[in-house]
Write a protein that binds this DNA or RNA. Sequence first.
RNA 1: GCCGAUAUGGCUCAAUUGGCAGAGCAGCUGAUUUGUAAUCAGCAGGUUGAGGGUUCGAGUCCCCCUAUCGGCUCCA
Length: 670
Amino acid sequence: MKITLKDGSFKEYENAMSVLEIAKDISEGLARAACAGEIDGNVVDLRTVVDKDCNLNILTFDDEAGKKAFRHTAAHILAQAVKRLYPDAKCTIGPAIDDGFYYDFDMPSLGREELDKIEAEMKKIVKENIPITSYTLPRTEALKLMEEKNEPYKVELINDLPEDAELSFYEQGDFTDLCAGPHLMSTKPVKFFKLTSSSGAYWRGNSDNKMLTRIYGTAFTKKDDLNERLEFLENIKKRDHNRLGRELELFTTVDIIGQGLPLMMPKGAKIIQTLQRWIEDLEDNEWGYVRTKTPLMAKSDLYKMSDHWYHYKDGMFVMNDNGSDFDSAGEEQNAVAGDTEAKSGKEVMALRPMTCPFQYFVYKAKQHSYRDLPYRMGETSTLFRNEDSGEMHGLTRVRQFTISEGHLICTPEQMVEEFKNCMALAKHCLTTLGVEEDVTYHLSKWDPENPDKYLGEPEVWEETQQHMRNIMNELDIPFTEDVGEAAFYGPKIDINAKNVYGKEDTMITIQWDALLAERFDMYYVDKDGEKKRPYIIHRTSMGCYERTLAWLIEKYAGAFPTWLAPEQVRILPISEKFHGYGEEILAKLKKNGILATMDDRSEKIGYKIREARLQKLPYMLVVGANEEESKTVSVRKRGEDGDLGSMELDTFINKICEEIRTRSLTQIEN
RNA sequence: GCCGAUAUGGCUCAAUUGGCAGAGCAGCUGAUUUGUAAUCAGCAGGUUGAGGGUUCGAGUCCCCCUAUCGGCUCCA
């Protein structure tokens, strides 16, 4: 038998040995712990009998599969501990995830105290060094076993597996679990772990099902790694936009105003204004957009025409005359479509959740020749979406937001080219903000299993999706394909970014719509004088400003590039004697469009600097006798070694203006 | 919407089994006039998120509402 090791070398064994012996022989610790292997490309557990002449790759904790086996075993230890302490708890599933694991139980929910107790029990199980063995059972016996153990969720899982599936079980002492594996050979190596939190989770991810209790944990092979991870979790909290954004006085929330309705404070509003002006100028001056400004609400008839009323009403704020002027769509749902005219004769209105139909009517307001196309409309658009109460989060999930929305009316022939342009514009925006490396691209497709959720014919969907696939390949952008993520009127490319906790949000979306023009009876007059249907691209050049701000706060930990900083320069006079000179500088900076202030409090210079550094200001100008005399400024930029020494004021102004003009991501040098 | 945790001055947090709501920072006033991460002193700041209940007495216990956080579900 020949064993291939990870480094490419191999070992030969004359006689078939037990897997345990082989693993022990090959390596101590990790490799033995993560005893998952591969035979002919299939991942197997090392405990499965390895036949003569099989090549076997030993995985270690450095491998994804090895980590998975390790953490999956941690999940089983968790389950075993829970069953010991709470015999009535029912096991469901418990996979390894990025950086850890979880297990869902049907049991009452748990607080921190209970988690600590479970953790202690887990430590016992690890210490007991329980060997883990596996075996397979035919279906009937598997069902019998799980019924005997009173595990109804496992019975359900078995029943849903294909008839001929081989059902494998993993056993560790008094605990047995239906599981595909692989696992470690014993509980002993799982020494360093921590149960991080518990929460609710629906059985099989369906909100109609029972709410289970989920326990999250993380596990490592080395104590230092675990500590590093826990420290990391502490540290990223400091970058969390929801905390840092409030600390830096960018935004706040107020109970009485409501959920998902953050208030932008002067600094946050300034950043958003800078972003908005930049995007509007970019679109209009360089990408051929015309600007529109359309209403924030409309009669329900408009949304019926677009079909949003039927596909998206839950997410809209509907206004009617039943006494509460802004009624939630949720309560309206039961009304029969078409029967929503208010009793008093007032019209049923809704705040807009998107800009599409409004811009369509701008297009329709005059006749268009093929020569007008592509007709690119841009709008800085405020939208309203009635998210469920548990969905709101900081600036990333809100009920009212502002977005650079746009619709491009194209001839069918222009679609590919224009779609590429939209991708290029999006990429330009990401690059300028310094975040182009931090995104993932997704082709969001329809779900052929659920055709009722979508408009149009299956062939059109498949064809459109192929167009988009081709575009992405041509642009050489890696992407994933996500089924069931499309808009109801067409597939889209979503550009997602991860927040500090690793959770993904869509920042940019570019959608291909071959259907709605028909619904709104939009047309253009072609060369031959015939009226023809255009296609439409729905797109954003950046995500909504609130979400973008959240992303930037976390990306830069509050230390924004100078062109985005709400306060770019602060003048710090050494004492009151130099306030006059400070004022002179301040006026000159402002004249040059630089966002500058002066700290004229009678504090020591060290105090003023400390404060400015905590606020992550790009530049401080220290001015005292030396500077006033020589008409210079002492420049300090962010960070350690930020002291750039003295500089002619005009030199500084030229440099910072250039930095701002070019939207540089790096600060000036000496 | 669901599961759980939390809510005390502008901010960060104390307050023992239910027994006089307190500190640091920030703010204000005065002194200090300062050279690259915190000068000193004084003052003021509260219906403990809202409402109801138990109790001689509630920040603390119970109910309900609201908001925030961690998840689930959702996210055109």
